Computed example of a mutant assay.
Amino acid sequence: MIWWLVLNLVLAVAAGGLAAMAWRRTSHRGADEIGEQAPGDVLALRREVAALQAEGHRALRHLSVVRYDAFPDVGGHQSWSVALLDDSGDGVVLTSIHGRSGGRSYAKAVGSWFSEQPLSPEEERSIALARPAPN
């Protein structure tokens, strides 16, 4: 039984030594050196991740909803404006105006955080709220 414990202890020490050698061998390398030696499938994955990151900037990731009463005789904040924008501030503002006798919907294009079409104060506010704070 003692020989079994001694054998396990020797194997554990040997494994620890091998792990330390492997860590020393790779820890002093720069990222470029490791990247040059990476297999083709790893390089392909890196290219795919870079493409997905670039594509993510065009995703409609910034949004804000502003609810309000469009008319003084209609309560409950049933009207709303929502801004759906990408990282460059390109996208759309959607607005739904609720009144007693019906409703209207509007869509206005937004480019670089501004619209060429006139915006209501609520639409401007939804764009401002969707815009990320500067770093």
Rank of each mutant, 00 (worst) to 15 (best):
W4I: 08
N8T: 04
N8K: 06
L9P: 00
L11A: 11
A12K: 13
V13M: 07
G16Q: 12
A20K: 10
A20R: 14
M21A: 15
R29D: 14
I34S: 13
I34F: 11
Q37V: 11
Q37L: 15
A38N: 13
G40A: 15
V42N: 08
R46D: 14
V49W: 12
V49C: 04
E55I: 01
E55W: 12
G56C: 09
G56Y: 07
H57V: 14
A59H: 06
L60D: 04
R61E: 08
S64E: 07
V65Q: 06
V66N: 01
R67T: 11
Y68Q: 04
Y68P: 00
F71D: 05
D73T: 10
H77K: 15
W80P: 03
S81Y: 02
V82L: 11
A83N: 03
L84P: 01
D87V: 01
S88Y: 10
G91L: 02
H98P: 02
G99H: 05
G102T: 03
G103V: 07
R104T: 06
K108L: 12
V110P: 02
S112L: 10
S112K: 10
F114A: 09
P118D: 12
P118F: 00
L119Y: 04
P121N: 04
E122F: 00
E123P: 03
E123D: 07
A128C: 04
L129G: 00
L129K: 05
A130R: 01
